[in-house]
Lab assay of single mutants.
Amino acid sequence: MQIFVKTLTGKTITSEVEPSDTIENVKAKIQDKEGIPPDQQRLIFAGKQLEDGRTLSDYNIQKESTLHLVLR
């Protein structure tokens, strides 16, 4: 499924993921596309910071959901 990751600069990254993918996994995909190390990434969805060990389905993230990427 496709999800969108919006950066603070307003850029939107499209990523191909599975509901069973972990947040860590998603951060790795963002690193592949943007070159941002996962340890600098914080992903936010519905006002919550997403934890690395959890999966997209844990957070009820569905296709075409938009996550927000904040850098630390």
Rank of each mutant, 00 (worst) to 15 (best):
F4P: 01
E24F: 15
D39K: 10
E16M: 13
Q49C: 13
A28I: 13
F45H: 06
V70C: 08
K29E: 04
I61T: 01
G47N: 06
S65D: 14
S65W: 04
K29W: 13
R42G: 07
K48P: 01
D32G: 10
V5T: 03
Q2N: 11
N60M: 08
K63P: 15
A46R: 14
L69S: 02
S20L: 09
K11N: 07
F4Y: 13
E24D: 07
A28F: 12
T14G: 04
Q2P: 07
D39S: 13
K63L: 06
T55H: 05
L67G: 00
D52I: 04
M1G: 04
Q31I: 06
I44N: 05
T12V: 14
T66R: 05
G10K: 04
S57F: 10
T66P: 02
T66M: 10
G53Q: 11
D52C: 06
S65G: 05
L71Q: 08
E18L: 14
P37A: 09
T9S: 13
I13Y: 10
K6Y: 07
G10L: 03
Q49L: 15
Q49S: 10
K63M: 09
N60Y: 06
V17M: 05
E51M: 11
D21P: 01
D21V: 03
R72A: 13
R42T: 15
S57P: 02
F4C: 04
D39E: 13
L56D: 00
V70L: 13
L8P: 15
A28W: 12
G10E: 03
D32N: 11
I3C: 02
L69H: 01
E34L: 15
L43Y: 03
Q62L: 10
F4K: 07
S65P: 02
K33Y: 09
E24S: 12
K27A: 03
T12R: 08
K29P: 00
I36L: 06
Q49R: 09
I23A: 02
R42L: 15
N60I: 03
I30A: 03
Q41V: 12
I23D: 01
G10C: 07
H68A: 06
H68K: 08
I36A: 04
T7F: 15
I30R: 00
I36P: 05
P19W: 07
T7G: 06
E18Q: 13
Q41K: 03
G53D: 11
R72C: 10
R72D: 10
L50Q: 00
G10R: 04
Q62V: 13
E16D: 11
S15N: 08
H68T: 13
I3L: 06
Q62K: 12
Y59G: 00
L56N: 02
P38L: 14
N60D: 09
K33A: 13
L69W: 01
R42W: 12
K29C: 04
F4H: 09
E18I: 11
K27R: 05
E18V: 13
K33D: 06
T55W: 03
L8W: 15
I13N: 02
D58T: 04
D39V: 08
S15E: 13
F4V: 06
Q49V: 15
K11W: 10
D21A: 07
R54G: 06
F45C: 02
L67T: 00
N60H: 09
D58W: 13
L67K: 00
D58V: 03
Y59T: 01
V70S: 07
R54M: 12
D39I: 10
Q2S: 10
S57E: 11
T12Y: 10
G53M: 09
A46L: 12
I61A: 02
P38Q: 14
L50M: 08
E34I: 15
M1W: 11
R54S: 07
K48W: 07
V70H: 09
S65V: 07
I61M: 03
T9M: 11
T66G: 02
I30S: 02
S15Q: 15
P38D: 04
L43W: 01
H68D: 07
G10D: 04
N25Y: 12
L8F: 14
L50G: 00
K11H: 11
I3A: 00
L69M: 08
Q41G: 05
K6L: 12
P38A: 15
Q62P: 09
S15G: 06
I30E: 00
D58Y: 15
I23M: 03
V17C: 08
P37F: 06
Q62C: 05
K11L: 10
Q41A: 07
L71K: 06
K29H: 07
I3Q: 00
I61D: 01
L56T: 02
K27L: 11
E64C: 11
T9D: 13
D39Y: 12
Q31R: 14
Y59H: 03
V70G: 05
G35T: 03
G47A: 04
D21E: 09
L69I: 05
P38Y: 13
L43K: 01
K63G: 13
V70F: 13
S65L: 03
V70P: 00
R72F: 12
V5Q: 01
V70T: 08
T55L: 08
H68C: 11
G35A: 05
G35R: 06
G35K: 06
S57V: 07
K29A: 07
V5E: 02
K27I: 08
M1A: 03
S65A: 12
G10Y: 04
T7H: 06
K29M: 14
V26H: 00
I13F: 13
I30D: 00
R72H: 11
K63S: 15
Q2I: 15
S15W: 15
A28E: 09
Q2C: 10
S15K: 05
E64V: 03
N60K: 09
Q2W: 13
T14F: 09
T12W: 10
N25V: 13
M1T: 03
K63N: 15
I30K: 00
E64D: 14
N25W: 10
G47H: 05
E18S: 14
Q31F: 15
E16P: 05
P38E: 08
L43T: 00
T22Q: 03
K6C: 12
I61R: 01
R54V: 06
Q62N: 09
E34R: 05
S65H: 06
T12Q: 06
E51C: 10
T66Y: 07
Q2T: 15
V26L: 14
Q31N: 10
K33G: 06
A46Q: 15
M1C: 04
L71R: 08
L69N: 01
V17K: 01
K48I: 14
T12A: 04
Y59M: 03
I3R: 00
F4Q: 05
N25T: 14
V26F: 05
T22G: 03
L69T: 02
Q41L: 12
D21R: 01
E18H: 14
K48R: 11
I3N: 00
K63Q: 12
T7M: 15
T55Y: 05
L43G: 00
G35P: 03
I44F: 15
Y59V: 01
T66C: 05
N25P: 02
Q49G: 06
D39G: 11
E18K: 14
D52R: 04
L56P: 00
S15D: 04
A46H: 13
L67C: 15
E18P: 03
G47Y: 05
L69R: 00
D39H: 12
E16T: 12
A46C: 10
E64Q: 10
T22A: 04
L50A: 00
D21N: 06
Q49Y: 14
G35N: 07
Y59E: 02
E34G: 06
R54T: 05
S65M: 10
F4E: 03
K27Q: 03
Q2H: 11
M1N: 04
Y59K: 00
Q62H: 10
R42P: 01
E64P: 05
A28C: 08
Q2K: 14
A46T: 05
H68I: 15
K63W: 08
T14H: 07
D39P: 07
I36T: 07
V26N: 00
N60S: 09
